[in-house]
Simulated assay, not measured.
Amino acid sequence: MKMRPPSFWQQPPSLATTLLTPLAGAVRLQGQRRLKKPASHVAVPVLCCGNITVGGTGKTPLTLHLAHHLQANGYNPHILTKGYSGRSKQQRLVLPSDDPIDCGDETILLARQAPTWRGKNRVQSAQDAIAHGADCLILDDGLQDPSLYKDVSILVIDGPAGLGNGLILPAGPLRETLDSALSRIKAAVMIGKDCHSLSKHFPSHIPLFKAEFSPGPEIRDLVGKQCIAFSGIGRPEKFFTMLKEMGVTVIRTLSFPDHHLYTPRDLHRLSQLASLPGVTLVTTEKDAVKLPQDFIKNIKIITVDLLWHDDTATPYIVDQLFPKTL
């Protein structure tokens, strides 16, 4: 069973963080050494959507959004991912019809948008993608992986969650410090309200674009209705809050760990809730890829996209990748 992040990651330094500080120091040094390794260049531009914290920040929605924008402008992006949570170790092209248990839930979502290559060896995935016609590559995660040279790196931040207690794993949720990441990125995207005043830490030469999660049109069918929402994403409360802000009456919520694989017991419990009179069961598109088709017929699936505060955000990012054509 997957564990949820410890509560002290979101709290001021404590005895737990003090005890873990030596280990966090070792993790930091290991990361610094790893970043000094030489990177392999490939024949097409590479865009990385990464973060510096453990857990969901919005990398995958941003990856999907940018892939759609590139396709709309005539490009053929392929997506590279390690396919976190999938059981298969095979390095290959993932099909939308593949089993999310083998490939990972987010990988299936990515494959529905653009050709998606899954595997630990990102350089090999890049070469395979180029051999199959990719004219640009998007990395879903990988900011701390130096193996593949990145032409453009975008840092994704969850505004409400911030950087937690600001400490490195395992004392805190950080993979690396913000200062370290700032030296390698071209822009940053903050999703949600800047509850921790992180904007002031970004230098003027690095644009910080802000966005919100925006639900798909199917949300209109739920306005004014009583719903029970369930989700197993990085921060399920983000999904629940979005529903409430759109006028959905959420009478109960059920949170599961990120990438949770729903068991027969889970499905039985959820089916009982779905059968309650006047109640609609609601979940995310990421959760839905792991649910049986006969179960999906009885629930409402909400898709999301990014709503930018600044309409120039997406063109700016793509312009960094193709400066002479857009």
Rank of each mutant, 00 (worst) to 15 (best):
F202N: 14
L64N: 03
H78W: 01
R265C: 13
V304A: 06
E218I: 10
E218G: 05
P96S: 09
P100W: 07
T53K: 07
V152N: 09
I52P: 00
R87W: 09
N76L: 03
S97M: 07
H68S: 00
L326M: 15
Q71A: 15
R118T: 12
P96I: 07
E176K: 03
R34G: 04
K200W: 07
L137V: 13
I138M: 01
V189F: 06
A188P: 07
L137E: 13
P160C: 10
H65C: 04
V289G: 05
P77C: 11
L35S: 08
F239T: 08
A187C: 15
P217A: 15
G232V: 05
Q127G: 08
P173Y: 12
P323M: 11
L307P: 04
P292R: 11
Q11T: 06
H78E: 03
V152Y: 11
M1F: 10
S271F: 06
C195W: 01
T325Y: 02
A171C: 09
H68V: 00
L35R: 09
G172V: 07
Y262E: 11
N51T: 03
G232S: 12
N76H: 05
P257E: 04
I219E: 05
Y149M: 13
G25P: 07
E176Y: 01
K300W: 09
L182N: 01
L155F: 05
M190K: 14
D266R: 07
D311N: 00
P277H: 09
Y84P: 03
S275F: 08
I168P: 00
I296C: 14
G86R: 12
V123W: 09
H259G: 01
R220Y: 10
H259P: 08
S197G: 12
M246N: 15
R269P: 02
S204Y: 13
P38K: 07
K186G: 08
L109Y: 00
H309R: 14
A16D: 13
M242N: 06
T263V: 11
T116N: 02
K150H: 12
L155R: 03
L15G: 08
A211Y: 01
T57K: 00
V152P: 04
K82C: 10
Y149P: 08
P236Q: 14
F202T: 15
I219Q: 11
R175A: 12
G247W: 13
G166A: 11
S40G: 08
D287H: 14
L169C: 06
T81Y: 01
L270D: 02
A129M: 04
T312Q: 10
L182T: 02
Q91F: 08
F256T: 02
R112Q: 15
L198A: 12
P115L: 12
Q91W: 13
G56Q: 00
R184L: 13
L139S: 11
P292E: 05
R122Y: 04
D266V: 04
L109N: 00
L261D: 14
K297F: 05
N76K: 04
V42H: 10
G83L: 01
I101W: 15
G278R: 04
V123F: 12
Q144N: 05
L182I: 10
